[in-house]
Design a binder for these strands. Structure first.
Lengths: 88, 88, 88, 88
DNA sequence: GCTTGGGGCGTTCGAC
DNA sequence: GTCGAACGCCCCAAGC
């Protein structure tokens, strides 16, 4: 084997390049995710500084998310019913 | 009480506006976060389609993250050592 | 209902005994855990009394733990690689 | 400096030995702690296998711990009062 | 459905 | 003594 790297040639050159690209894309995206998470944290911290109860704020967000999910679910069922009877 | 809403006036108008703003900012950011998470998922899915083992890819990413964290810790402890012997 | 306790008979006698045993075992173990935590604290306190910087000591321990975790992850990914190329 | 190690002599030989001992003691204790934690987990797992609701079991343990703390607190206050009036 | 990883929460420790 | 930061614990959700 005339492999120019120390690893055995399990992946050919093309695959190795692809692999590298994939890992880098994921890592870049995870950085983005972490940045957004940091932003959220910062908003809560700021809110805390204004006297808001962060735990309650989180709960509000959670409840609204649930509510939104519920509404979308209901909408989906409505659409289903409508299509079942041949549209409105 | 001349409150125009059904809730008692625990929060004054300014605070209510701030609260609304905070919640909206967080919700917007969470949407961003979800979008990024979806992107990551998509990258892995695409990789899977090319024959890569997603489980291994995830582990590689995690390992590299650990690596990075370890390096940062090492740097931090070095700073600690330096300060312990009386500053640089 | 001829239950001799004030609670309704949701759990039969056997289950109640088991429950009691389980709770007691857990509580005993938590005491052990707390004792060990106290021992750790004491070691650091003693070290501090000898002039060591506790903050640095903690960081050293943490760093070594990271090291160990990283090694284990590396081992895990190796196993993954091996299984990916069709068993050992 | 005729130091036989690569590090500068910030710590003399005795201190280095002590340091090593301290770190090892802490690490050994942390292993113990982890082992106990694993035992606890195992008890809960076993309980789960017998049909108990682990989440509820945890809550029971937590409540009893709070109760115990409360009792000890009351006892402490009682002692305080007693000593304040010159013993019982 | 079981297991593993990520996020949130409470607690604890060190700093000021 | 209060503050913020770090740690471990617990829960939940996604992946296999």
């Amino acid at each position: 084997m005339a492999d120019d790297s120390s690893s055995i040639e399990v992946l050919n050159a093309t695959a190795q390049t692809r692999l590298k690209t994939i890992i880098e894309r994921v890592e870049r995206l995870e950085e983005d995710k972490a940045a957004v998470a940091a932003d959220i944290k910062e908003v809560f911290l700021e809110a805390k500084g204004e006297g808001f109860d962060v735990k309650i704020l989180r709960k509000v967000v959670r409840l609204r998310k649930q509510d939104k999910a519920k509404r979308m679910e209901e909408e989906a069922i409505l659409d289903l019913y409508l299509s079942a009877i041949g549209g409105l």
